[in-house]
Design a protein around this nucleic acid. Sequence first.
DNA 1: CATCAACAGTAACATTTGTTACAAAAACTC
DNA 2: GAGTTTTTGTAACAAATGTTACTGTTGATG
Lengths: 210, 210
Amino acid sequence: MIKELKDSYGHLFEDALLDEISRVGTFKEVPEGFKLMEIGQYIKVMPLLISGAIKILRNDNDGDELLLYFLERGDTCAVTLSCCLGETKSQIRAIAEMDTKLIMIPIGKMEEWAAKYKSWRRFVFQSYHERLLEMLSTIDSIAFLKMDERLLKYLRDKVNVNKNNVIHNTHQEIAYELHTSRVVISRLLKNLENQDKIKLHRNNIEVISI
Amino acid sequence: MIKELKDSYGHLFEDALLDEISRVGTFKEVPEGFKLMEIGQYIKVMPLLISGAIKILRNDNDGDELLLYFLERGDTCAVTLSCCLGETKSQIRAIAEMDTKLIMIPIGKMEEWAAKYKSWRRFVFQSYHERLLEMLSTIDSIAFLKMDERLLKYLRDKVNVNKNNVIHNTHQEIAYELHTSRVVISRLLKNLENQDKIKLHRNNIEVISI
DNA sequence: CATCAACAGTAACATTTGTTACAAAAACTC
DNA sequence: GAGTTTTTGTAACAAATGTTACTGTTGATG
């Protein structure tokens, strides 16, 4: 574990902290689709991403869903962080976007290390910062963009996160994550195909140039 | 200043910290409508709210606007916090919703006190937590609610923040903050009036029961 | 008081998004 | 391979939201 931890976080944390992390943290490997967090669950550990990606989703009471953003290597979940102190329930759902490796830290350490390590404080503040900016970006999308532009942004994000221009999703799945209906997504995707920006196949979308 | 500081933050901070705050902080009183922060400005101070309220707005490049949330007594601006370390530019606009009293802290203190005072760390983390939840709530509104429900929520929030069921806004101003058009707001407000939930007057809206 | 600008009401229409319904193709099951 | 399920395509329509245009009212100003 030490090696993978150092590769991803060595430039951020001092050796003493890396040491503590490798002692109290638990290495975990989860497959694509694995549910890491469900709304209403209590949060007991905080994840440090080593590789892979996690998608963070918001659900309301009626089952409506919306993709908020992705976590990638070097990220941690700020919503988790903020829940640590308050011992509150999760407000979000977290699903592994692909096979993912992470280190789980017991939440008690969060506050302890914040007192002890400057690099940890910087990391935590920085994580909050990034997450707030991601949230602002999400708000921009849903408030200011029309569905066709949101779909384009979604496809771009997927390509970046998965480092692959074939997107393995059904139209229905995309519709859920953008909180619209399957028919709408099919319609807009067909438009994009007619503009030669993508090619549609069953269960996957090939991105040509967007 | 000591008295007002103690009234608002005495239960949160230890005496030594209150002392430091009153030494390095600057007391400031701003009138309704005062612009505290503009997009693109560098952030050099962080505000602690003593009384009044501040509305936080998001703007995109095309001048589109959206109300994110209000800050009230005991709050601080998490977006400011997160910008402190990175020395980044503001991503939001902040306007005094009413006459407001606040204490401005030089941002350098933020990190210094985080090392020194546990209560400060708790406060900062708690502020982030609250702001993230507010952002989630904002996302819920724009993603899951229709405009009539968003308007209702807006009116409720206004009544709560201003502690007054007369809302002093034109339809155009409301339209800006909800990022829609004046005609749409007029139409929906008229519906609410027909349901006897509000009474419309020039430049203000009287909330009956919503 | 006449003029003007800001504000609000409303109709008519356009666009975007959502819904329902059905068909065809592909993949899976037995 | 017959039957079934999943996925996608598409038409027709409904609802929500946005736009344009014009009206009257109010309050401010000279």
